[in-house]
């Protein structure tokens, strides 16, 4: 199964050098173990653009769809054999990046 791990924060690019080192080490390990699919830090929500092209002419709107204090500041996409393995990975990820995480399986 693949699942999305969203990093919850109220700022972006806020990891300390120590956290960055821990995250890099964690990433290297899960790449080696075959659990890594994707990882990346996101720019601030104010850099977002909403696109609505349902009606034939694309409408662009500046800014994120939802303004909120807390938002997704980065994400992992991970691969695990079952829910328990996923849970272990995410528990460790929350520790190394020192943030709350939201986990949700892909279909």
């Amino acid at each position: 199964m693949q699942f999305l791990v969203s990093v919850l924060d109220d700022k972006t690019n806020s990891a300390t050098p120590e956290e960055m080192t821990a995250i890099t080490a964690f990433n290297e390990r899960i790449i080696a173990d075959g659990n890594w699919v994707f990882a990346g830090g996101l720019a601030a929500p104010s850099a977002a653009t909403v696109v609505d092209n349902r009606a034939g002419e694309a409408i662009f709107t500046d800014g994120p769809y939802l303004e909120s204090k807390e938002y997704i500041a980065g994400l992992w996409i991970m691969q695990a054999d079952d829910l328990d393995a996923a849970r272990d990975l995410v528990t460790e990820a929350s520790k190394v990046c020192n943030r709350r995480l939201e986990v949700r399986p892909f279909l």
Partner: peptide, 25 residues
């Protein structure tokens, strides 16, 4: 972003949803 928005506009049409485009750092 011009290319990303073009792709997103097409994606919005084919999946018939609103989308949000946000850059990775």
């Amino acid at each position: 972003l011009d290319v990303a928005l073009k792709l997103a506009a097409e994606a919005s049409r084919v999946c018939n949803r609103k989308l949000e485009v946000r850059p990775f750092v």
